[in-house]
Design a protein around this nucleic acid. Sequence first.
DNA 1: CTTGACCTGTGTGCAACACCTGGGTCTTAC
DNA 2: GTAAGACCCAGGTGTTGCACACAGGTCAAG
Lengths: 125, 125
Amino acid sequence: MAQTTPDSIRHYVRIGLLAPLRDPDSGYKLFGDKDIKKVKFIGRAKGLGFTLRDIQTIFDHSNDGRSPCPAVRDIIRQRIDENRDRLAQLNNLQRRMDDALSKWKSMPDGEPDGEAICHLVESID
Amino acid sequence: MAQTTPDSIRHYVRIGLLAPLRDPDSGYKLFGDKDIKKVKFIGRAKGLGFTLRDIQTIFDHSNDGRSPCPAVRDIIRQRIDENRDRLAQLNNLQRRMDDALSKWKSMPDGEPDGEAICHLVESID
DNA sequence: CTTGACCTGTGTGCAACACCTGGGTCTTAC
DNA sequence: GTAAGACCCAGGTGTTGCACACAGGTCAAG
């Protein structure tokens, strides 16, 4: 999947998802075992469709001593529903695009006539 | 699909996609026939997967007296390819999510133990 | 003349980074 | 001893397509 880059790590720190210790001298980030574990967790959770905000929620539950598992089950059900909707939308879009392209095969290009902007586009729907 | 709202119109003006005349007294936007035509065009083009930047390109061609049709054909082919990739990704995601959820059905919630963050998530992959 | 409904431009927020700037630091090679 | 190269830092900006908020101007109706 998408890689974990230095910039993504920086992003996680910026939004407070990670809070590594700092070297007092250099100000450099110091990642401990827990931070590494969190980074790995983020990767897995993202691979399951969780947003960074979802992951923050999970971390919050965990920090409060509550089990995040019920929330995890709720969230993934939401994400599944959302993804189904998005898939349906994109499938519709795909169909419209394919239809348009094949319809345009038999149509000539038009020159600007002050009337239409692009008759290809305007011939759809 | 997605509606054309006052805010979307404002957005189009902001990014220079529309440039309605202004009432010299009130500063209010005055939409002429060409603006209306453009708004309709934007709606159709968006319905075909064109981005606002794509649409700007089309308008630019049109304003330069060139036919936008060749560009339109090129762009939609790109968008079709992108959408195919995106669909494949989302279908994979859907499968992973479904697999996870069904696997989790037979797993109990875990309490925080300082070891794992959420063993449900960590059991995947 | 006031009320309420609509308009104005500008700024911010969303998601998840990627890229850039301008600088500090650290190691290695000459 | 110093200079080059390879790291690191914080902070700001750009991406996409708006939605929402703010403080104020405008306008028709009562």
